[in-house]
Every structure is written in C-alpha cells, then in structure tokens.
Design a protein around this nucleic acid. Structure first.
Length: 231
DNA sequence: GACCAGGCACATC
DNA sequence: GATGTGCATGGT
C-alpha cells in the first residue's frame, strides 16, 4: 500500500511537472500578478471575483487616476463613491462592501498597515483573511500568493477543469483537495506556484474550455488525458 | 440576445 | 452537506 501510494504520488508529481513544462514552453512567463503595489494586487483580487480581468483594469484605472488606491484613502472614502468608481468591475455594490470589509479588518486589527501582515505566519494570515466577509478561499489564496509571496497554490475554475480533465484528480474534488494536489506534489516554491497558476488560467482561457473539446492545446501531448466526459 | 468571466454569501432543504 | 440564487458589467 505504501509502495503503491508512493509510486502514485511520484507519477502525479511527474505529471504536474510535465504539464508545467508544456505550458511554460508554449506560453512563457505570464508576469502575474498584474499590479504595481501590494494593495493594488489585493484590490484586484477582490474585484476580479467572477469577472473578466479587463473589466477590473478599468476600475483600478479609475482608482489610480483619482489617487485613491491606498488603504487609507479607500478606508475613508464613502462607500457609494467607491461603488461608482469600481462600477465597471460588476457587482459593484457587493465589491465595494467587500473592499471596505477588508480595510476595516486591516485598520481595526493591524493598524491599517499591510507591512504588519508580513509578521503573521501563513496559516494565521489565511485564517484571518477567510474570516472577512467577501474573502473566500480563492481570493484569500490569491492575496497570500501574489501579494505576500506565500507558498499557497491558488485554485480556480480553470485549475479544476485542467486537473480533472487530465485525470490528476477525481471529478468531485473540492477546493482544498485541489490545493493539496498541487501543494503536496510540487516543491513549495512561491515563484513556481505563481507561474503555474497563471499558466493554468492561460491554457484554460485559450484551450481547455467546457465545449468544444480543445484543439492544438499544449496539453494534447499528455498521455493521461481523459475523454471530456466530466464536463 | 445569449453566454461567459481569475467567487462569495446566504437561504433553504 | 448539497443545492439554488442574487449580485452586474462589458466583451464575444
């Protein structure tokens, strides 16, 4: 049992490495997360929930052009004004509240300083982020990886689709099982996790779509690709 | 006009 | 615990 389990895990590691190489060879570095500051990355992570990134870019451009993209400025900004500035990102009333929730937590618990969060260990920071209404697992993990360079693998709809379609995990895997798949079978390296997740989003957008089946996908060469019965 | 996009909380069963 | 629904803009 132990031997077969070890062999299986080794195969998964090899498959994950092969996938990474195929994606990186095709697409090259993705330069994620797009954002000049830690706070811009965090803001983008909340604004991009179930939303196309181009819509988020417009909202962030508004916050930048009005010189409001700092924790202090947004914390003091009227929520209805914030909602209007981020309108293009969709769900703008909901997301204005969520940004405010994050900022209230930051100011009430950490003196409004992102630098104070660097002192928290990854598990504690993750737990605290998840306690904020409007910050779920993907958003928390995006913040941990892309804003704080923590060794957390971000799971999203693309990650799940690629992993399930290529037989790396069963079709009913939940978020934490998917995160564990990558974190337990890859070296704990935030640079690798950063690039890997970005590449999965890239291949998911361009090829690994629900329908029709992919064509000319860089992962066609994988030997363990399943028929697309799961989607 | 339909469908999709780098989710999440909440109600209901 | 699983399932359904509201939230909303902008591109294809």
């Amino acid at each position: 049992m132990l031997a077969s389990r070890t062999a299986t895990n080794t195969m998964i590691s090899e498959n994950l490495t092969e996938i990474y190489q195929l994606l990186f060879d095709r697409f090259g570095p993705q330069h994620w997360w797009p954002g000049e500051t830690q706070f811009e990355i965090i803001t983008g992570a909340i604004l991009t929930q179930n939303t196309n990134w181009t819509n988020v870019e417009k909202a962030i451009a508004n916050l930048k052009s009005t010189h409001l993209l700092t924790p202090e400025k947004l914390f003091n900004l009227d929520i209805s004004q914030l909602a209007q500035l981020i309108r293009s990102a969709g769900y703008y009333n909901t997301k204005a509240k969520r940004l405010k929730n994050f900022l209230s937590w930051l100011f009430n618990n950490h003196a409004g300083q992102l630098s104070n969060l660097e002192n928290l260990d990854t598990n504690q920071l993750r737990t605290e982020l998840l306690s904020i209404t409007g910050i779920g697992r993907e958003t928390a993990d995006s913040i941990l990886l892309y804003a704080f360079n923590r060794e957390i693998f971000v799971v999203d709809a693309y990650t799940a689709r690629v992993a399930i379609r290529h037989g790396l995990i069963g079709p009913d895997a939940d978020y934490e099982q998917l995160r564990d798949l990558f974190q337990s079978n890859l070296p704990a390296n935030s640079k690798l996790f950063n690039e890997y997740h970005a590449l999965l989003v890239r291949v998911g957008k361009e090829f690994c779509r629900p329908n029709p089946a992919c064509s000319n996908c860089p992962l066609e060469k994988l030997s363990h690709t399943l028929d697309a019965d799961y989607f």
